[in-house]
């Protein structure tokens, strides 16, 4: 069995998922997992697909050629992934960042994480408030692994002060049961 990551981006309209799924089912492919969302009128989909042995990446792409044309997709990529490559490092901390919206918040925080070699497993942002005083909220889940939490906390505090935002890092709550 082959495993592929399929991503597609296009202007939102009804029928995108159906057209992509039709192409995949035509070659007996199985959609094992997916993420789909809309942002700014653009639809993005990421699929983890398994296929019968005889299909390689080019064959999967060919199977999606119709969908690509009909939907006028702006991008369609197919990449082979190893079986079980879905296993991302487990997030163990959540970082909340908020402040008056201005360019550079995402960069300031993520650059510090990258320098510390810490992976982001999930990142969400939200813009609230009115136009005169927009409030930017970002939450990241990160996998610290062996990294020193106290040290990172201190580094993030310095970055937060420079970027004039609030930063709070907490261990991810493990639910009992």
């Amino acid at each position: 069995m082959g495993h592929f990551s399929v991503s597609a981006i296009g202007r939102d309209r009804p029928g995108i998922v159906a057209a992509i799924a039709a192409g995949l089912v035509g070659i007996g492919a199985n959609i094992e997992d997916s993420r789909m969302t809309i942002l700014g009128g653009h639809f993005a989909v990421m699929l983890l697909v398994s296929t019968p042995d005889e299909y390689d990446g080019a064959a999967v792409e060919a199977a999606l050629a119709d969908a690509r044309e009909v939907l006028e997709l702006e991008a369609l990529t197919v990449s082979e992934v190893g079986a079980g490559a879905d296993a991302r490092p487990a997030a163990d901390h959540v970082i909340t960042v908020y402040g008056s919206d201005h360019p550079g918040i995402v960069h300031a925080i993520t650059a510090e994480l990258a320098e510390a070699g810490i992976g982001i497993t999930d990142l969400q942002t939200r813009l609230a408030g009115d136009r005169s005083s927009p409030l930017y909220v970002m939450m990241l889940e990160v996998a610290l692994g062996d990294a020193d939490a106290a040290d990172l906390d201190e580094r993030l505090s310095r970055v937060a002060e420079a970027a004039v935002v609030e930063v709070e890092m907490r261990p991810l709550e493990a639910e009992a049961l």
């Binding site: 959540v94 908020y98 939200r126 909220v137 970002m138 939450m139 609030e166 709550e173």
Partner: peptide, 11 residues
């Protein structure tokens, strides 16, 4: 906001 666990699920 300093106390929420998830932006998607909780805000």
């Amino acid at each position: 906001l300093d106390r929420v666990a998830s932006l998607v699920d909780d805000v």
